[in-house]
Design a protein around this nucleic acid. Structure first.
Lengths: 234, 234
DNA sequence: GTAATAATTGTAAAAAATACGCTCATTCTA
DNA sequence: TAGAATGAGCGTATTTTTTACAATTATTAC
């Protein structure tokens, strides 16, 4: 379907829906965003979010998963609908709704080759170029959502490797909230929640002493939720 | 447009978009929802959210405002997009996305005649009948959003008259959170935020002594936000 | 003028958030 | 191999916020 309609632009007598993905990663203490160069007219070659038209026989969320897998090779990652963008004039070519979804991926796990093949690149979140259509707005909205959501739900872990250190986790939250956190209080708070499993291994990539690795304890987290606990980080 | 396509159902080779409105009100200490009987096949006559197809030349948010005005006569009320519902099989008749929006209205201000003319009725939120399609899911999601949102943003005021008493406000929050609040602590917390303007009038509808009326102080609230304050109620 | 009703007020205790500095484990190098 | 360098890890005191809890006040109805 994409192929057919991408030839004729200015199709305003028919409705289309696109699934656009805001793909976040985390590396080197900074939040990253995966962008690629648009492959279809109009605006071919411009930086853009990764997206696709939604097929008529396909759920919107499936469309987003399909796109994500195409570009990164990843399945079963955290993905949530951000919102629908429905201005009549948002796309000069089509009357096209976009349902934006954001994904959090472990930057060490994606298929690098596949990403390069599609002409995609990781950008620091504070160095995003001009994007096509209303995609900059989508990114801004997604970042806002990420900030809000990270405070009350442990979605940050989706951006870290399965095994991570507490200083890494703190770095992540500092990147999301864009402010420094006190390491003693941060550690105290996190450990008090009882959702981290301490491993016997250390990560020595960033210090001579090495820092203990932890895993997220999803079982305990679910218990915590069921008990009506009001989860909150930093 | 609605008229044309409502004749032929089973149009699955074309995409439609609907704007469905979850309209909340508050009266007698209970959260209410405005529903009406569906006017088009399939499922004509069943209880349903109020909605309409989105016209091709119309913003999605405009479509929702249009519907709301048609039914209640109200404009400029709080309305926010909930999310898009995009399952391929969500509507047996059409391939139709729905962008659900929720509105908070002052139940004393709507146009009662207009509402009745459209066959609409107010239901207590815990007595919602079976609705068409995925509308029950939408209501559940909207309620969840309302609960979350009310805690960190003063949207509750949108459901009360311009002038309200503190006991009324407490009733509202008790209805939203579905738990009792301590009246001394509630009052203390609310007044400490400095976003209520005490008036010289009293409301005597619920007590012999009468309770002082207050207005929401939007200016002070905006100041509070700008100063980076972390607003939280109850 | 007395009973009834809901509105209003204060204080003490507990819990959570914040501020803050030193020691530890390990590696590197002199 | 001793000592310097580096980030990891820990504890305590202070402040702020939240919670728990009961008596008084203004007004109306009898």
């Amino acid at each position: 379907m994409t192929e057919i309609i991408s030839d004729l632009y200015h199709v305003k007598d028919k409705l289309y829906a696109a699934a656009d993905c805001i793909i976040f990663g985390f590396e080197g203490g900074r939040i990253k965003l995966l962008l690629f160069r648009r492959r279809v007219e109009p605006l071919k070659g411009e930086w853009s979010l990764i997206g696709s038209f939604v097929r008529l026989d396909e759920d919107v969320s499936e469309a987003a998963k399909r796109v994500l897998k195409e570009i990164t090779g990843l399945e079963n990652v955290f993905m949530e609908q951000l919102k629908a963008y429905g201005k009549a004039d948002r796309d000069p070519g089509f009357r096209c709704l976009s349902i934006a979804q954001y994904a959090l991926i472990r930057i060490n796990e994606y298929d690098e080759e596949l990403v390069e093949k599609h002409g995609a690149h990781w950008f620091n979140i504070d160095e995003i170029p001009d994007l096509v259509l209303d995609h900059n707005q989508m990114v801004a909205d997604a970042l806002k959502r990420l900030k809000q959501k990270a405070r009350y739900q442990p979605i940050g872990f989706e951006l870290l490797p399965e095994k991570f250190t507490i200083p890494q986790l703190q770095q992540l939250y500092e990147a999301i909230y864009q402010r420094d956190l006190d390491s003693r209080n941060f550690r105290k708070k996190l450990l008090s929640l009882n959702v981290l499993i301490k491993l016997d291994e250390k990560d020595k990539s960033s210090s001579k002493r090495g820092a203990f690795l932890y895993k997220f304890d999803d079982k305990n987290y679910q218990k915590l939720l069921e008990s009506g606990y009001n989860f909150e980080i930093a």
